[in-house]
Every structure is written in C-alpha cells, then in structure tokens.
C-alpha cells in the first residue's frame, strides 16, 4: 500500500498543534499556580509610595525655598542699584 503523505502530514499537524497547545496550557496553569504561591509566601515589599511622595514634596519645598532665596537676592541687588 502506498503511504499517503498528505494524511501523514495531517497527523503531524494534529500532533504538533496538540503538543503546542498542551504545553502552553500546562504552562499557563503552572504560571497561575506559581504566581499565587509567590504572592502568598514571598510578597514583594512594595516600594513605599507615601515615602516617595513625601520625597517629591520635600523636593518641591526645597525648590520653593531656592526660588524664594533667588528672588530675594535679585530684589536685594536691584534695590542696591
């Protein structure tokens, strides 16, 4: 009997697509499990958002101080002319 290569290739296709989807499916499942485990047992210490905010506020305050001093110096110099 002559082998029909097209039928063979369709078999390959079913095997191949099946394997790819099975692999990715299992991968998705374990990714979910893994992220649950990681979040439960190793919760990442989130960078303190408030601290960052405070820092920027501090920076803003400092900028305001610098601006005020600059303005004062300018005013002072202009006043001496």
């Amino acid at each position: 009997m002559e082998t029909n290569l097209v039928v063979e290739s369709i078999k390959f296709m079913m095997l191949g697509m099946g394997t790819v989807f099975a692999f990715l499916g299992i991968m998705i499942f374990f990714m979910d499990v893994m992220s649950k485990i990681v979040h439960k047992f190793f919760p990442e210490i989130q960078p303190d958002v408030n601290a960052a905010l405070r820092n920027t506020q501090n920076e803003n305050n400092q900028k305001k101080v610098v601006a005020a001093i600059t303005a004062a110096i300018k005013y002072h110099r202009e006043g001496q002319k």
Binding site: L5, V6, E8, S9, I10, F12, M13, G16, M17
Partner: peptide, 10 residues
C-alpha cells in the same frame, strides 16, 4: 507551521 506542512506535502 503545521498548516503549511500540510500545504507543502499536498
């Protein structure tokens, strides 16, 4: 990949 395999063999 696999669709083309069938196409090429056909």
């Amino acid at each position: 990949i696999f669709g083309t395999l069938v196409g090429a063999v056909a």
